[in-house]
Design a protein around this nucleic acid. Structure first.
Lengths: 198, 198, 198, 198
DNA sequence: AATGAATGAGCCTTCATTCAT
DNA sequence: CATGAATGAAGGCTCATTCAT
């Protein structure tokens, strides 16, 4: 076997799976927090599935709450990116809005739909001033703006009110699909929004 | 077996406050489950605030889940009664519907509004087949019917679809007021519903 | 086998070892806290040696600190009783005082020179307002009074000052025997106290 | 070896604050060990306040115990130096001894007086053979000698016994001021020592 | 009915230390 | 010399539930 290392400009091996331990923990935690709920998921399970030691976990995250915040942040970013990718082909604001409801529906069709990570966490966090709550509020503000901004170019006067209304229907769609485990909320909402935008 | 109760010198004491121990436990649990969340509330706190012993608790309720179910049941009944009382003066279906949103708003004005007991519990109960979930679904079905039935007399054809839509806005109102801690969701939704019913 | 229960007036079996679980835990903890130090002794070790479960422990003591306080209280009572027994034969106040130093000497020899439970706990409790500290102060006040009261009958005017001085020598005796693991501090102190009382 | 420093353009940087990293760690640890107690102070806090990494710490000290020993050694030296400075103006042995008690008192006036670092550490170190204990014993032997030597010139015959006695009162003064948080122990002891030396 | 002691798995977090870089 | 990720045992404490009285 020839030694090719001389040709290697960047000799350091990239980490086996190109993902730091911290990211791995966060990834596993994200999955578990979403599927089981924040409060129902213990640190022990997270580190076991991540194959790490307790101390390792706490050297990366100062507390469970800090991990929870990181989770909500990446979830917000990832979810927005996924939505954007889904809307790629949509050109008009109306299209984007209607397609957003289709996105929800496709998301729900994945098995065991668990609804919205943010609203679920809101539900088990009574303390209004908690850091978790701040993350939730800011993510929801962003979502509401998504609809408002989509309307702004064509209907600047109604954008705010109409966008808020559509945002509420969007939220209701998630919650009701989580509860009833059927797609009718998406259909009902999408249909009405289509009329509103017609 | 002979009935010896006639010989009883100290007849069964009437309960001090006209409320059985079981009801007292249930009452306290209801308050705590709603304020703190189902998962965040332990049996220990419930029995302590109720002034009972562990064993007494378990002689009345076979498990925490059973207590949770009882809670959701009385909550459903009580909440419906409170809503009905609020709607007393409303005569037409439209009136009843619009006033329902006012009811929500007055509810929310209580400090530290915790939103909907059912949706909050849904959020921390991933198991779709659980008894808690069944209670939640049935309560929500009842609420949806409340709107549909209010519409049936005057708009039989649209009742189902329109009622479902309004139900979704109603749900969204609760959730968004819980999150943002403002009344705008109630206003936005009520305004739109008023237009829909005009 | 004849059923003798009818003859039994107090049918309930007295507990096997005439000692409640709570007392057993407290007894074991007292031994460990003293031998190893309060901070060096974990709940796990206590319950293991007591043969109980974690929950049992916490149903008897609300926290480790509560156990620590109970420990110091029984220790104070027990130690005073042991001292009193040791002084039984002493009749005069002077005798009682001098014999107190002999007691210390035998006590330290028996305990592998672990010193004073109260001073040791004081050393690892920086928080001046802690409940543990209150217990320590009150126990030491009692000890100082022991000397003052022994002097009161014969030397009422000097009792306070002389008693305090002797108390300090008594304390120093414990501490120095703990440190040097020899009897010289007891001898030195006793000798001087004898001169003071001559 | 030639002195090349003249050629050095960027001569070895004098440490920013004239203190090596090792000394910095030791300084911070000394403060924390004294204020909070040896056992109550974790490596994590020390390195955080010192702004160093774990590995750096362990490259300077092989273990927490080694750091503890270093702490006691510098503490012994520093404390002795401070005492000596306080006694500067005292010329006779008697003066030096009496002033030593004043030194204690001035020390105690600092808020949250934590008593003697050595006795506190003794209290949480049951193992008689530990390295920490050796340091403690030797420091205390030195202190006792301080008093004996002060007496030797004028009272060679009594020096040993009287010095030991005064040493004990000195120790008791520290301990009782730590416990009661008042200056009476210093006054009581100083007064008596003054009589002894008169 | 009611009591409350007992259970043991589980909670989140910190410990002192090692090691590859 | 310095870094900081990794370790896993141990820290104090709470959980829902059972059971003998």
């Amino acid at each position: 076997m020839t030694d090719r290392s001389v040709f290697c400009i960047v000799p350091q091996m990239p980490p086996k799976n190109a993902q730091s331990k911290k990211d791995e923990i966060l990834g596993i935690a994200s999955k578990l927090f979403y599927e089981q709920g924040y409060g129902n998921t213990g640190i022990a399970q997270i580190i076991e599935e991540a194959g790490t030691a307790k101390g390792t976990f706490y050297s990366h995250f100062k507390s469970k709450e800090a991990l929870g915040i990181a989770w909500l942040q990446v979830r917000n970013a990832d979810w927005s990116k996924a939505l954007e990718r889904f809307l790629q082909s949509s050109e008009t604001g109306s299209d984007r809005i209607l397609k957003s409801f289709d996105f929800l529906r496709s998301d729900m069709e994945a098995s065991d739909y668990r609804g919205c990570a943010f609203l679920n966490t809101l539900a088990e966090t009574p303390q209004a001033e908690s850091a978790l709550r701040k993350e939730i509020v800011s993510s929801k503000r962003g979502l509401r703006d998504h609809f408002i901004e989509a309307l702004r170019p064509t209907r600047p006067d109604e954008a705010e009110a109409l966008g808020s209304l559509i945002y509420m229907l969007f939220e209701a769609t998630i919650v009701e699909m989580q509860n009833f485990r059927t797609a009718w909320p998406a259909e009902t909402a999408r249909q009405h929004v289509a009329e509103l935008l017609a």
